[in-house]
Amino acid sequence: MQTFIASLRITAATMVICVAAYTLAILGIAQVVTPESANGSLIRRADGTVVGSRLIGQRFEQPGYFWPRPSACDYNAAGAAGSNKSPTSPDLIARASAMIARHGATADTPLPADLAAASGGGLDPHITQRAALYQATRVAGARGVPTKEVEALIQKFAFSPGGPLTSDLVVNVLELNLAMDEASGPVSASR
């Protein structure tokens, strides 16, 4: 019985320190020092409406936007998930074939693999620079701007996430599409 009393006393002490004090300390630091990312790195329009999060992928289907990687959870940021399919699974062939058809890939212009493979959480905000350049012609055509301009914008947004420790350049799809809208007007009006 005494051991349970001692256990309960330690429970109370650890709750106060580990749950209340620790959480409030980190909450305070985060909200004061980095309020923008502490609240989810949200991107807002001039009128304050939230467009999305810089860190969270969203669905793009119109030809004038760059398209993200496929998502096993349909870009649901309140219920993220991966496909959890074995890389040997026939289900992946079906999904990849659909992506190939959408992008119009052929044996001569093969699709960059990240546009065929779903990410772990289904919310990857990035595609590789290769995958962005692959879509440049379509985006430029839909917007009626020179492909060169679109490619220049991709180069501007491409970065190496780990500096010298990663080999692929990536671009943030939402940020790139926002920049496209800024440069040549939103495409959503033409829907």
Binding site: S83, N84, I127, P161
Partner: peptide, 8 residues
């Protein structure tokens, strides 16, 4: 498949 691009 199942990987995030930002980690390498």
């Amino acid at each position: 498949e199942g990987k995030e691009l930002r980690f390498g």
